[in-house]
């Protein structure tokens, strides 16, 4: 049985892969991160010689011994504290942070008992600077990058490049407001005027040389194969700096793309170095035809690549997991 670790919502790619596993004669059981905090019984037991993990999925008991492969697709847990009117905001904040750490450790305890079976993939995130260094070592071009808290350093960097962007060093976040809108952190241009308005020392931030684009590339990688898609984001000012500022009225055109063999080989070397069997990579194709690596997301959504390009990605992931289960 293939155990799919995921979350309850926004997981259409996961649903489709599970469909394919069932269609191809396999069996997948889905465990969402929320399941561990909802009161359904589970147990991780370490004995003198043998260990056991038992999970409940919709009232059915599942033994870890029946798991042949694990697909770690997503994992989301939210255990909010109740009102606790007698406490202070400072105590509440510390307790909330500690609860998150406890839940993370409990999840890791469950995962530890399935260490012996194949996983797709292990890390859920790769540090951006580490990824850039490994990509460069693998033969991919990368943008000049600076992480700094110094206005003087930032101004020097801006003066040395035609344009500079900033983005989160981590995955970013989304914030709801009181008008049912969501505010998001996108890649944004930092001008010299912006930098001059900053204090001499500011919060540590990641900035990069802005790379001129003819188009953006989203590449889904699985087990040595690249499935690239070109995104024509440059004709629309809304999407020119970051295609994820989606224009839903007039979406960017997306088409299948063929990577040069040497770039595809470099991506393979990079993914091996970073320890990923799968992931979604973002690259830029410059007007001169160079390919510049930006970052990799081990758990990126891939229906956005598979569907417009007519790539059989859901089936390929299902087949990979079924092969892993019987290996």
């Amino acid at each position: 049985m293939i155990l799919v670790l995921s979350q309850e919502s926004y997981e259409t790619s996961t649903d489709m892969v599970q469909d394919w596993i069932e269609y191809l004669g396999g069996h997948a059981t889905r465990l969402n991160g929320e399941d561990l905090t909802r009161g359904e019984p589970f147990a991780v037991r370490l004995g003198r010689e043998h260990d056991e993990v038992r999970l409940s999925v919709d009232g059915r008991v599942l033994s870890g011994a029946t798991v042949g492969a694990v697909w770690r697709r997503r994992w989301h847990q939210m255990q909010g504290l109740g009102p606790l009117p007698g406490t202070t905001p400072a105590v509440r904040q510390l307790a909330q942070r500690h609860l998150a750490a406890e839940l993370h450790a409990v999840s890791q305890s469950v995962f530890a008992l399935m260490d012996e079976v194949p996983w797709l993939s292990r890390p859920l995130a790769v540090n951006k600077v580490r990824a850039l260094r490994l990509a460069r070592r693998a033969g991919l071009e990368i943008p000049e990058t600076l992480v700094t808290n110094s206005r003087a350093e930032l101004l020097t960097f801006i003066d040395a490049h035609d344009g500079v962007i900033t983005k989160c060093a981590s995955d970013g976040e989304m914030f709801p407001d009181d008008q049912d809108r969501t505010w998001a952190l996108y890649t944004s241009v930092v001008t010299r005027e912006d930098a001059l308005a900053l204090p001499e020392a500011f919060f540590p931030s990641l900035v990069q040389a802005q790379v001129e684009k003819s188009c953006e590339l989203r590449v889904f990688y699985l087990d040595g194969e690249c499935w690239p898609m070109a995104i024509f984001s440059q004709a629309d000012p809304q999407t020119a700096v970051d295609f994820r500022v989606y224009n839903h009225v007039r979406p960017n055109r997306t088409v299948p793309y063929r990577l040069p063999a040497e770039v595809e080989a470099a991506i393979g070397r990079f993914m091996a170095a970073v320890g990923l069997e799968t992931g979604s990579l973002d690259l830029i194709r410059t007007p001169e035809g160079r390919h510049v690596f930006l970052e990799v997301n081990p758990v990126g959504q891939f229906s956005m690549v598979g569907e417009p390009c007519n790539y059989p990605l859901f089936r390929r992931v299902a087949e990979y997991l079924m092969r892993a289960e019987t290996a």
Partner: peptide, 23 residues
């Protein structure tokens, strides 16, 4: 939301460019 980006000593530069996610 504006309060989030008020003090660049407390948040990364990216917070200064928060924008509404298109829906």
């Amino acid at each position: 939301i504006a309060e989030l980006s008020r003090d660049p000593a407390q948040v990364p530069l990216a917070y200064g460019y928060l924008r509404v996610a298109p829906t």
